[in-house]
């Protein structure tokens, strides 16, 4: 178990380093940070001096190594726009995004797993078809448009929920639904397929032969085995969701890290964008790493060699 965890950890670190290198070079190659910093009114002499001051004239690898060295210590540099340390900016905004992510994935799991189980228990029944319908709709629904539709219905027509802001819990309801519905179809389909397979397994018959009731058979014996791949998928979806929070946060004006990313891109605030890419990638990597561990814990065939 320990070697398994260490191996996964090593891979995770390597992936994180590569992502940082790729995103750094993407932004390095595609823009001139000095002119972005100097603003539109700056003369070429101003730009030149900024370039030397911040070290943008050094070779690429030196700059990357320097940036990475600082980043590893939690220093992502200064935001061009806010003139504040990027790490502080992100730290202030991250709690909202994480809360949104947790709510979103919980909403997705709470709706997807029961629906998937119910659909698998009665294939081709009304509930199976309804679940399929919901998932097909969810996969085709552009989340930004879905968000706007919810605003029109619940904020404008019914006046139940606030359309924007991040003041209270009511602000999180619609974003949660939008973000959760984005992740739900895949989780539901995987739960259904896994349950269908597991319910045909011999050990389910054994459980019934013992006299176990249907609920016990479903949830103790079947779901436990069917849920293993769902855990991985949920982790991946959670990572995608945080990355996708940029869309949802901008629609509902939730001032989280996604909103910050959107603002920063618009303002050419490269250090902030750079750091946010790494932070979101970091979340994805941590989640998948945790899900690997969770899978090992759930599946004794991985855990006990």
């Amino acid at each position: 178990m320990l070697t398994f965890a260490l191996k996964r950890l090593g891979l995770a670190v390597l992936v994180a380093l590569t992502v940082s290198a790729v995103s750094f070079s993407l932004l390095y190659l595609s823009g001139d940070p000095a002119s972005a910093m100097a603003g539109e009114t700056a003369t070429s002499a101003d730009i030149e001096s900024i370039r030397t001051l911040y070290g943008f004239d050094r070779p690429f690898l030196v700059q990357y190594a320097d940036w990475l060295f600082n980043a590893l210590q939690g220093d992502f540099g200064q935001s061009y726009y806010f003139k504040l340390p990027v790490s502080q900016l992100i730290a202030d905004r991250l709690s909202i995004t994480m809360l949104l992510g947790v709510c979103g994935i919980s909403f997705a799991l709470v709706t997807a797993i029961p629906l998937g189980v119910a659909a698998a228990v009665r294939p081709n029944s009304f509930i199976d078809r309804t679940a399929l319908f919901i998932s097909v709709m969810g996969q085709a629904m552009p989340s930004f448009w879905f968000g706007l539709v919810l605003i029109v219905i619940f904020s404008i027509q019914l006046n139940w929920l606030p359309p924007s802001g991040s003041g209270g819990w009511k602000n999180f309801i619609m974003p949660t639904v939008v973000l959760g519905y984005y992740a739900m179809p895949a989780i539901m389909r995987l739960t259904r397929a896994g349950m269908l397979e597991v319910l045909n397994a011999d050990y389910i018959r054994t459980a019934r032969a013992k006299g176990a009731g249907e609920w016990r058979v479903m949830f103790k014996h079947a779901l436990r085995n069917a849920v293993v791949p769902v855990v991985s998928l949920a982790a991946v979806q959670m990572g995608f969701m945080l990355g996708g929070s940029i869309v949802v946060e901008s629609i509902f004006a939730l001032h989280g890290a996604g909103y910050l990313a959107w603002e920063s891109i618009g303002r050419n605030d490269l250090p902030t964008v750079q750091a946010l890419i790494l932070v979101f990638a970091g979340f994805y990597i941590v989640f998948t790493f945790l899900s690997d561990l969770a899978n090992a814990w759930l599946d004794p065939r991985i855990r006990v060699g």
Partner: peptide, 29 residues
């Protein structure tokens, strides 16, 4: 009724299956 049948199964009548490799739940001890 199913509940009465469950009371009998595994209690007063039990069954041993053909495939020992797959008849035990892999997730539990």
């Amino acid at each position: 009724p199913p509940s009465a049948m469950r009371q009998l199964r595994g209690n007063r009548m039990a069954m041993i299956f053909q495939e020992p490799m797959t008849s035990l739940n892999p997730a539990y001890t």
